[in-house]
Design a protein around this nucleic acid. Structure first.
Lengths: 153, 153
DNA sequence: ATTACAGGTTGCACTTTGAAACCTGTAGTT
DNA sequence: AACTACAGGTTTCAAAGTGCAACCTGTAAT
């Protein structure tokens, strides 16, 4: 029987889930994208227990997804902000949100819409692309183990 | 304090996480994308307990992400295959995988590469796009509550 | 009748989660 | 100086979830 650690060691999906595969972590990240920074903001928004929130934030900081910064305020106050690594989770959240829009709410009933301020169009889908930005059809893929090669760039 | 159910009710991310926000569910879906169909295949691949696997598969079938079909074989054998709804999770998994390639393994050390058989190029990124397929820059978004409107399509 | 196998269920120890109470540092108020 | 308020936690403990091992079931081959 394969050990869990082995399975995870070389799978990016598993690695991502080790960092955010629970009920709360990605919701905290989501709230950070909406501008929340403070322990009490996350606590209030999510209705999460303080001990759980503290543990999750600690892990997110350990994983360098959040940054913890002391504030120049009375008492010991901190703010938690997304790092570049954390902000790069935006597309994961968006993919999940659009999946739910389609399959849970139905497109007509999406509760939240992101709109491109430049064009006025909504974010409607998330697509896989090659390095040049050309869309790739998931139906015509093959898989290869190991690192990317130059001629595939 | 906001109740958890309230928070979840109108957030696509939360809805997605309710369906797959645990250690195992998305790994089962991942294995299905690699062609696994049988209880014993998932069990062996993941090193997951039978009771947990059975519970997760039941939930996935309830959510219409997997389909359970009896096979014409000795004993009671079944296969679990992804529905359209389940196959639509491909982009979520890909977004997670590429995030890990970049931030956990490093681009040079990605353990698995997906290659477009038509062009020979690898899947290098996942991008948000409007309905016409034009990429949207996450830095220039605004948010609106409620359903999409026609002029945003 | 016995064995083999897929696909489970059940029982029980162990771990994680969650609600509530409590603690700590700083500042403003009495 | 004592008291209060507030953010950001930690501690405690009961309840829920996880995971291993043992057992069960239907079918077919030996």
């Amino acid at each position: 029987m394969a050990k869990k650690a082995d399975v995870n060691a070389f799978c990016g999906v598993a690695q991502a889930l080790m960092r955010m595969g629970d009920t709360w972590t990605l919701l905290i990240v989501r709230d950070a994208f909406f501008g929340m920074k403070r322990f009490s903001e996350f606590e209030k928004s999510l209705g999460i227990s303080k001990n759980i929130l503290a543990a999750r934030l600690r892990k997110l900081v350990d994983f360098d997804i959040f940054e913890r910064r002391r504030l120049e305020e009375p008492g010991q106050r901190y703010e938690y902000t997304l790092t570049k690594k954390g902000r790069d989770l935006w597309v994961v959240l968006t993919a999940m949100r659009l999946w739910s829009d389609k399959w849970v709410f139905g497109e007509e009933n999406a509760p939240l819409v992101a709109i491109d301020t430049a064009t006025g169009k909504r974010v409607a889908k998330v697509i896989a692309a090659d390095a040049d930005g050309n869309p790739v059809d998931p139906a015509r893929l093959r898989w290869r183990l190991g690192a990317p090669r130059a001629n595939e760039e």
